[in-house]
Amino acid sequence: MSPIATIADLLGSGLSPREIRRHCAPAGPWQQLLPGVVLTKPSPATRLDRLRAVLSFAGPSSAITGADALTRRGAVLPIPRHIHVLAGENSRKAHPGILLERTTRPPGVVERDGLRLAEAARAAVDMARRETNPRAVVQILDAVLMARLCSPSELREELRVSSRRGTALVRQALRHLYPT
C-alpha cells in the first residue's frame, strides 16, 4: 500500500480534519508533501514517494515525464531537482519543485511502481526540448537509445506529432546522430 494519501481519501476513511492536522503537525508522524497530499509514514519522503505525491496532486490524467520517467525504466540520466509532470490543459495547479506542463495531447502511459510514466519517446523529447546545451540533448538521446527504451524512428515520430516549440536542438541532434 502506498504511503501517499490525499486529504479527501483520509476524510473518506473516517478521519476528521482535526485528526489529519494533528498527524501532520511538526511533532506528528505524517507530513504534508503538497497541498492536499500527505505522506502517512514518519520517515522522510523518498523520490518514489514524491513522484506518487505529484501524481496525486496533478490529478488522475497526469503522467510523469522527463528524467524520472526515463530513469524508472532503465535510462542512466541525472535526476533534476524538479519533477516533470504532464497534466490536462485544464489543470491550473502549480507548486515549487514541480514542472507542470499542460498538454492537449496526453501521452501513452506505462505503469511502473504504481506510477503513470509517459512513454519513452515522449519523455525523452519532453526532457531534451528544455535543454539549451546541445551536448546535454545528445546525452539524453544516447541514454534513451542505449537503454533500448525506444528507437530513433520512434523519436522522429514523436517530434513529428509534438509541438515544435523548443525542439530545434533535438531535431538537429537526431538528424546528426541517426540520419535517415
Rank of each mutant, 00 (worst) to 15 (best):
T71L: 03
R92E: 14
P107C: 05
R21Q: 14
T6D: 06
C150F: 09
P107E: 06
L117S: 07
V76K: 10
L77R: 02
L15Y: 15
S153L: 12
E154W: 02
V37S: 02
G74V: 10
R148F: 06
V170P: 00
V137S: 01
Y178A: 04
I83V: 15
A128R: 11
T180F: 09
R156E: 12
L34K: 02
G166M: 05
D9C: 12
A123D: 02
I98C: 04
G12N: 13
A25C: 05
A94M: 08
I98H: 03
L100H: 06
L155D: 08
S91H: 05
L177E: 06
A27D: 14
G88L: 05
L159H: 03
R105Q: 15
I7K: 12
S163G: 10
R130I: 00
L48I: 07
P152T: 10
D113E: 14
V37F: 02
V138I: 15
P80V: 10
A69Q: 08
R73M: 13
A143R: 00
V110D: 13
V54K: 00
P3R: 13
I98D: 03
P78L: 08
G97Y: 07
F57S: 03
W30F: 11
L51K: 01
R22W: 07
G74N: 11
S13A: 14
I64W: 00
E154S: 12
A53V: 03
M127T: 08
E111M: 12
A168W: 05
R135K: 11
W30C: 09
S61H: 13
L34G: 05
G59L: 13
T65E: 06
G108R: 15
R92T: 15
S61Y: 07
E19P: 00
L15S: 13
S151H: 10
A87M: 07
A63M: 08
A58D: 00
T180G: 14
D142I: 05
L77W: 03
P29F: 04
L155M: 11
R175Y: 03
A120V: 08
S153V: 13
G12S: 14
A5P: 06
D113F: 02
T104S: 14
R22V: 10
I140G: 04
R165S: 06
L15K: 14
A128E: 07
G59D: 10
I83A: 04
L77I: 04
P29C: 04
R129E: 09
S151P: 07
L159N: 04
H82Q: 14
S151V: 07
I7H: 11
L159A: 01
I79A: 08
L15V: 05
P42M: 07
W30K: 13
S13N: 11
Q139D: 15
A143H: 00
A87S: 11
R81S: 14
A8Q: 14
I140Y: 05
R165Y: 06
E101W: 03
H84D: 09
T103L: 03
V85K: 01
T132K: 12
